[in-house]
Computed example of a mutant assay.
Amino acid sequence: MKRTFFLVFVLFWSLLLSVGVQAQGEAFAPIRNAIRGSSSHELAEYFAPTVELSFDGDKQSYSSTQAEFVMKDFFAKNSPASFDFIHYGGSNEGTPYAVGKYAGKNGTYRMFVKMKSVSGALKIGTIDFSKE
């Protein structure tokens, strides 16, 4: 009896955790589609008013408009051959993030996207590209 209860309990929590990860993945779906389509304009719709962009450790903060042009330039120089998020997570404070693999014409990058809450909505606060 105790073993059955334990198995049901573990199964229940596993199901809840998988639903949470799937929900995070769905939250990042439009961002993934914008990156796959190398659309800086679509991506910018999800930018916070200030966005931190980092390319191989060169980190700078931009307004959402400036960040759109920086991403447009990046996509022009490194159009994606493939892109997908490979891991979703959240900080202890509940801030969602995703790690992806971006294969462009000039190499492969590990991409980190972290959201932040802006007026009750989740917006992109950080994008970090690290060449592999």
Rank of each mutant, 00 (worst) to 15 (best):
F9E: 10
V10P: 00
L11D: 02
S14W: 02
L16Y: 11
V21C: 04
Q24E: 04
Q24S: 03
G25C: 02
A29K: 02
A29G: 02
I31N: 02
I31R: 00
R32N: 08
R32T: 13
R32C: 03
A34C: 04
I35D: 10
R36Q: 14
R36Y: 01
R36M: 07
G37M: 06
S38N: 15
S39Y: 00
H41Q: 14
H41C: 02
A44S: 15
Y46A: 11
T50I: 13
V51D: 12
E52Q: 15
L53P: 03
F55M: 08
F55W: 05
F55I: 13
K59Q: 12
T65A: 08
A67K: 09
F69L: 11
F69W: 09
F69C: 01
F75Y: 10
F75M: 07
A76K: 11
K77F: 09
N78R: 05
P80N: 03
A81R: 14
A81L: 12
S82W: 02
D84E: 13
D84T: 04
I86S: 02
Y88I: 05
Y88S: 00
G90P: 00
N92W: 09
T95P: 00
P96L: 10
V99F: 08
G100E: 07
K101E: 13
Y102T: 02
A103Y: 04
K105R: 12
K105S: 13
K105M: 05
N106R: 08
N106D: 06
G107W: 03
G107K: 01
T108M: 09
M111S: 11
M115W: 01
K116I: 10
V118A: 09
S119V: 01
S119L: 03
I124N: 11
G125D: 06
G125I: 06
T126A: 09
T126W: 11
D128I: 04
S130F: 12
S130T: 13
K131C: 04
E132D: 12
